Simulated assay, not measured.
Amino acid sequence: MIDRRGLLAGLATTAALAACGRGGSANTDVLRVGSQKGGTKSLMLASGALDGVSYEVEWSEFPAAQNLLEALGSSAVDLGLVGDAPFQFAYQAGSPIKAVSAQRTQSRIDGALSILVPARSPVRDGKGLKGKRIATTRGSVGHYLVLRSLMASGYGPGDVELAFLSPSDSRAALQTGAVDAWSTWMPYVAAAQAEGDRIVVDGRDFVQGYGFDVAPESAIERKRAQLSDFLAREAKALQWARNHVDLYGAVLARETGLPPDIARATAEKNVRLRVPIDAGVISDQQVVLDTFRRFGEVKTVRPIDKAFADHI
């Protein structure tokens, strides 16, 4: 049996936040990159993509996209990968950020984003969530999944109660029965399944699989060359990860403290490839934005095409 407290502590730890506190550094010899747990940092280290880089990469780690986007919006970090839903949520809230690169999963992968319930729960599908209390992080891909699932079941905003919590607090709430379900992403999905929780809604049917490298406007202006170089290296790392799942998983385990089997499952389900930001991508993002607006979660109207930077 996996030690539950140790696993949750490993997943929830936010490393190097003190480095983020410097904020707004104009030093172009340093690129400050934010990484979600088991995300960009592990990928770049595993692939060796940063070998020979001519500038310093300063890493900061975050438990969820919301925290990373707050750091990006305050120019505490220069670059970070987030899902499409949290990016749109933050951008429409007025954050001075733009997407500088896009990634997308190349196939529909089971369980990478899911709504889970305890093993003993009577809930078996999305319709069974009516009247239930669901934990997720506000503005996250998990939040977006709940809304899409409600739409698919013919439900409205009042048919479930949302509890906006951090991933670690969400997991604890599910364990104690304070909530009935948890909408989350890898590696939290794999960790919850290892403890016996069940998937009742699989996000593969509701999300488009996009992730965006996001930068504050200040970094786009001052560090364009470093951003361009890092993104090119990241694209090569993504290609590498497709063919080296075991090696990628081993580094994930070392960097995150996850058990090897959970780290490998995360590596297998987190592989994306870089795609151009074109009219099709922007059109797909309109679906995300319209969903948040339909449920009253987003009220401002920033032009969606302005959310993407010119070629970096």
Rank of each mutant, 00 (worst) to 15 (best):
I2A: 09
R4S: 13
R5F: 09
L7H: 03
L8F: 08
L8W: 06
A9D: 11
A9L: 08
T13K: 07
L17D: 03
A18W: 00
A18P: 10
C20Q: 11
C20H: 05
C20R: 14
G21H: 10
N27H: 09
V30D: 04
S35I: 03
G39I: 07
L43W: 00
L45H: 05
G48W: 13
G52W: 03
Y55M: 00
E56L: 04
E58Q: 13
W59L: 04
F62H: 08
P63N: 04
A64R: 05
A65T: 09
L68C: 11
E70I: 13
G73Y: 05
G80I: 09
G80T: 10
L81Y: 03
V82N: 04
V82C: 12
D84S: 14
P86R: 14
F87P: 15
F87W: 12
F87I: 11
Q88H: 10
F89I: 10
F89H: 15
Y91T: 07
P96T: 07
I97K: 12
V100H: 02
A102D: 02
S107Y: 01
I109F: 06
L113W: 12
S114R: 07
V117T: 07
A119C: 02
D125H: 05
G126P: 12
R133Q: 11
A135G: 15
T136E: 09
T137S: 08
G139W: 07
S140P: 11
L145K: 10
L147D: 06
R148P: 00
S153Y: 02
P157H: 08
D159S: 11
V160R: 06
L162R: 08
P167A: 03
D169S: 14
S170I: 06
V179S: 09
A181V: 09
M186S: 15
D197N: 14
I199P: 00
Q208C: 01
G209M: 08
Y210A: 06
Y210G: 02
A215E: 07
A215T: 08
A219F: 00
A219D: 06
I220Q: 06
E221C: 01
R222A: 12
R222E: 10
K223H: 05
A225K: 10
S228A: 15
F230N: 04
F230M: 05
L231M: 09
E234S: 06
E234C: 01
E234N: 07
A237T: 01
A237I: 01
A237G: 05
W240R: 11
A241N: 07
H244N: 15
H244D: 12
V245R: 14
G249M: 08
V251D: 03
A253F: 06
R254E: 14
E255I: 10
T256I: 07
L258D: 06
R264E: 15
T266L: 13
E268V: 13
N270Q: 10
V271R: 08
V271I: 13
R274N: 03
P276C: 02
A279H: 12
A279C: 06
G280F: 07
V281S: 12
S283V: 11
S283W: 13
D284Y: 03
D290M: 01
D290W: 05
R293T: 09
R294Q: 12
R294C: 03
G296N: 07
V298F: 02
V298W: 02
T300G: 01
V301I: 00
I304R: 08
I304N: 03
D305W: 03
K306N: 14
A307H: 05
A307G: 02
A307Q: 02
F308I: 04
